[in-house]
Amino acid sequence: MNVQVEPAKLKAKDFASDQEVRWCPGCGDYAILKAVQMALANMGAEPDNTVFVSGIGCAARFPYYMATYGFHTIHGRAPAVASGVKLANPDLDVWIVSGDGDSLSIGGNHLLHVLRRNMDVQFLLFNNEIYGLTKGQYSPTSRVGQKSPSTPQGSVDAPVDACTFALGCNARFVARGIDIQAKDLGHVFTRARDHKGASFVEIIQNCIVFNDDAFAHFTEKSVAKETQIHVAHGEKLIYGAESNKGLRIKPGSFELEAVTIGENGITEDDILVHDETNKVLASLLVAMKPPSMPVALGVIYCDPAPSYEQAVKDQVEAAKAKGLGDMDTLLRSGSTWTVS
């Protein structure tokens, strides 16, 4: 039976709690919060059925500002708590909000497992390449040489790339957005929520206090068009202010190459078409970095597979279908004897 339910016509502000938002003025988190609230309203999400789970860090305060159910847990463990929520009630719409330290350092293990299990949650990773709440130490995504209170001479360890990590964990949905691009974020959030299984979204987020302009080289309006490529399934991988740049497989190699249409005999036919189900392409796209390559944004990979909590629920239901357990029978199973 296909019953058409009139979606509640909520507005973005209906998803905002009565709590005063306490991020630093100018923090990228404000824009993301707005974008999430707007996207939920547009999707017709139900606040009563929505749960935001977070760990520790600036981003982790997110649930307090949402007029939904929310659980602010402990450092790095949000995916584990969210997994329990989803296992107990698969009908809930569960979102995890995390930062680069929370999910790629202390909580790296849980991010790995929530993705590879394909638990049906949305995982939003706010990546600002810095520890904000503890006052500016370098993070696992900070670039080599990052000066910080704990690395006065510059950090020496190589960073992890969030989306590459997610693909390596067998995530079935990987997307990327930028805090200030509300419309694109909204689209990504909608796709993420519609995707059954773990949806991983990296959000490039500016920390105005401890790592200001870390991403300016590709987020600034003046350079954005030349340094960003917004991918869409089935469409050519074309970008640039004049839409004359594109990506192709570099002849004789196994890597992507940024080319200009009309130069060196390149035509539009040479440009790759984005296939979001192609994991190899996805792994090449997420690894692209300016200045030689544009930053890939949008839904980079989406190839659904059965979700974990559904498979678990199916096993429970199958066991129940064979007959509900009876305690007294269970206690008397196996060898017993009677004394009269």
Binding site: T73, V81, S83, G84
Partner: peptide, 10 residues
């Protein structure tokens, strides 16, 4: 943590 999440969910 997942046990806590399950309790939170009822």
């Amino acid at each position: 943590c997942s046990a806590i999440g399950a309790s939170y969910a009822g």
